[in-house]
């Protein structure tokens, strides 16, 4: 892990000093125990602050669409930046998706593939107490559920590969979804409503998600207005159903929404249900290749219709 960090710093420094990129998006130490924070490295000194460890949780792809958007205060011609991204498998899968959706210019992104052993879950670490925090950082005990269920720890589309120990892909990741599916419709609904009722509408789930780059989210639209602003259950449900369904065929299960939610809504269960459906119905796993077209933007005569006939 430490070797990887040293190599990463050297790589980032080279890229910046040789002006191959304008910016390296990575991680630096945060202000709290067990926290890193996104780092916008623009020079050699910044590159020296980059870290790589099991606390590099954020999905940095979230910052890319805005970097490729011409700033409002720039007049005249504008050249989009060249950006290197310190990427885990999930981050790179998000970048693939954003490239397909024309939010990111592939040629302007250098994907630095990092060896990923799974990231520590802050919630698990807190629940385990202070002693476990240091002693269990190496094993799988405190690793986030999303990482235990990760099907692609290796980085797709890598431009530069930093070697190191990496976890292997999980085989069966849908046990919780299967348990959920086994419930009656009424029970599923009850569980969904109970989770969503906790929502305070801070939209951290949306803002942390690389896929949520819409200029105006449907929930913020006023003309027409799709939902009320309050915490009436119908309004909360509408936001979450809208958000989750917009992720169908796009969600890479990076867990950014889960980590960002301050009130602990079990968002993963709902996005994962959509992931499973898309995988089963269309045989599609998002973010693994640049070539395959997203299932919801293509039509095949033999597309499954069971979601209409057998919801």
């Amino acid at each position: 892990m430490h070797d990887a960090q040293t190599k990463l710093r050297e790589t980032a420094k080279d890229l910046l000093v040789s002006a191959k990129v304008d910016l390296v998006l990575g991680f630096q130490n945060g202000s709290l125990p067990l926290r890193t924070r996104p780092c916008f490295a623009r020079n050699a000194a910044d590159a020296g602050r980059l870290v790589w460890n099991r606390l590099c949780t954020n999905n940095l792809a979230v910052y890319l669409p805005r970097l490729f958007e011409k700033p409002a205060n720039v007049r005249g011609p504008w050249t989009p930046p060249k950006v290197a991204v310190v990427a885990k498998g999930c981050d790179a899968r998000s970048i693939m998706g954003l490239v397909k959706e024309h939010q990111v210019i592939r040629e302007n992104v250098v994907i630095i593939a990092m060896p990923c052993q799974g990231m520590i879950s802050l919630r698990k670490a807190e629940a385990a107490g202070a002693s476990a925090r240091t002693s269990k950082l190496d094993g799988d005990d405190l690793v986030a559920q999303a990482c235990l269920e990760c099907i692609q720890p290796s980085v797709p589309g890598a431009n530069i590969i930093i070697d190191g120990p990496s976890r292997s892909a999980a085989s069966d990741r849908f046990q919780r979804v299967k348990d959920f599916e086994a419930l009656t419709a009424a029970e599923r609904w009850q569980q969904f409503v109970a989770q969503v009722s906790k929502c305070i509408r801070c939209y951290a789930c949306r803002q942390a998600c690389p896929n949520c780059y819409c200029k105006t989210c449907f929930i913020d639209q006023t003309k027409p207005s799709w939902a009320g602003v309050g915490d009436d259950p119908t309004d909360l449900l509408l936001f979450h159903i809208g958000r989750v369904f917009h992720q169908a065929g796009r969600c890479v299960e990076c867990d950014a929404c889960v980590r960002a939610c301050p009130v602990g809504i079990d968002l993963r269960l709902f996005t994962q249900k959509l992931v499973k459906d898309v995988e089963e119905l269309f045989g599609y796993v998002p973010g693994t290749s640049l070539e395959e077209a997203p299932p919801l933007s293509t039509y095949r005569p033999d597309d499954s219709e069971c979601f209409i006939t057998d919801p």
């Binding site: 924070r37 996104p38 916008f40 979230v62 910052y63 305070i200 509408r201 801070c202 939209y203 951290a204 949306r206 803002q207 942390a208 960002a260 301050p262």
Partner: peptide
């Protein structure tokens, strides 16, 4: 630059 623009801090 690092801020995600969510409302966690305010709410």
């Amino acid at each position: 630059e690092r801020c995600l623009g969510c409302g966690v801090c305010t709410f």
